[in-house]
């Protein structure tokens, strides 16, 4: 009687005739409306990002925070592919070719998993550089001031105590101990001394900056200095950093990179806000990917023939949306 398919719910009473305004099923209407609310959700997140970024005094460049375009681009590509495969799954399902549809669906799922895998790898890279959104893990200091040097000193003291308390130290551990001591002597002590003696003079500040740079050289700073005509005059400030090996991504490695166990506090102006927004945006996006994967997993238990084409279409709509969000996220986070 009714040509307007009802998606679920109990069948009861008489079946009524309706006058639908749109020539699509209720489920699809529902999905479109749901996605429009999702747009507002991400609009709020993007808006937050833009407001905070352009309201911030400084903002780290992508290389300062170990964002590699290559991974972002790969992920973009992976998601676009998965959008294609889900369409192919739908096409197959419409032709009632359930096994082909299932293969495409599995491929889509796999691509989603690959995306998440890369995302996890990227997250791990952040964590290994102490870029956490969460205290007390986060070690980001906004500026190289006394609080920063205090934090470095504290961390060194902890390391030292740990090492000294190990009864039979290995050779490697002995070396570690020497390094800890030398960092203390080379950077922390002179900087703190200079600050204490003449708080107003720039000498202490320069020493602090030098220390920060040695621990965690910021690519943006070095890029600038390379370009700057005064590079030669100023390079002495960054001698340790410049003698160390350039990392694969083309930027200089600092103490934290060379000796990952050090985990010294790092200085990135605007870094905290950057981590917060980065994890906020990519986190909610990843959550949407996961929900999509769960939906795929449920779909895979069904026969993906014509009868379920509507379902595939709805899930596909959702998946395209997730893809679209990433297409905005990628340039925003990685390229600008």
């Amino acid at each position: 009687m009714s040509d307007n398919p009802k998606d679920d719910g109990p069948s009861h009473g008489p079946n009524f005739d309706y006058q639908p305004a749109l020539p699509i099923s209720n489920g699809k209407t529902f999905m479109w409306l749901f996605l429009s609310t999702e747009i507002m959700f991400f609009a709020a997140l993007f808006g937050t990002y833009l407001v905070l970024r352009f309201g911030a005094i400084s903002w780290p460049s992508t290389h300062d925070v170990h964002l590699a375009e290559i991974w972002g681009a790969t992920n973009t590509f992976v998601l676009i592919c998965s959008s294609v495969t889900i369409v192919l799954a739908l096409e197959a399902a419409k032709k009632n070719n359930a096994s082909l549809a299932k293969s495409w669906m599995i491929l889509t799922t796999l691509l989603g998993v690959v995306f998440l895998g890369i995302k996890m790898y990227e997250y791990k890279a952040k964590f290994s550089h102490s870029l956490y959104p969460q205290y007390p893990h986060s070690q980001i200091y906004e500026k190289a001031d006394v609080y920063y040097s205090q934090a470095v000193r504290k961390r060194l003291a902890v390391l030292k105590a740990e090492l000294e308390n190990t009864t039979d130290r290995t050779e490697a551990q002995n070396e570690q101990l020497t390094l800890v001591d030398s960092i203390s002597l080379d950077y922390v002590v002179p900087a703190e001394k200079a600050i204490r003696e003449d708080p107003a003079s720039p000498a202490g500040r320069i020493l602090l900056l030098e220390m920060a740079d040695a621990i965690y050289p910021r690519a943006s700073v070095h890029d600038q200095h390379k370009r700057s005509t005064h590079a030669a005059a100023l390079s002495s400030n960054f001698h340790l950093a410049s003698t160390s090996t350039p990392a694969a991504t083309g930027h200089v490695q600092g103490l934290n990179d060379l000796y990952p166990w050090l985990k010294l506090p790092i200085m990135i102006p605007g870094g905290n806000m950057w981590v917060s927004t980065y994890f906020l945006l990519t986190g909610f996006h990843a959550l949407h990917v996961i929900i999509g994967l769960i939906a795929f997993a449920i779909m895979l238990t069904k026969t993906l023939g014509t009868s379920n084409a509507g379902l595939i279409e709805n899930v596909g709509l959702y998946w395209h949306f997730v893809d679209l969000v990433w297409i905005f996220l990628f340039p925003l986070l990685y390229l600008f």
Binding site: L33, M40, F41, A44, T48, S138, V275, S276, T277, L280
Partner: peptide, 25 residues
């Protein structure tokens, strides 16, 4: 509701994260 509420939801998450995760939105 549909167009305004998601914004509050997003803001709510951010406030929770400021409180529990130590972000500073």
């Amino acid at each position: 509701q549909a167009f305004a509420l998601p914004v509050l939801t997003a803001a709510g998450f951010m406030q929770v994260s400021d409180r529990l995760l130590g972000t500073g939105f």
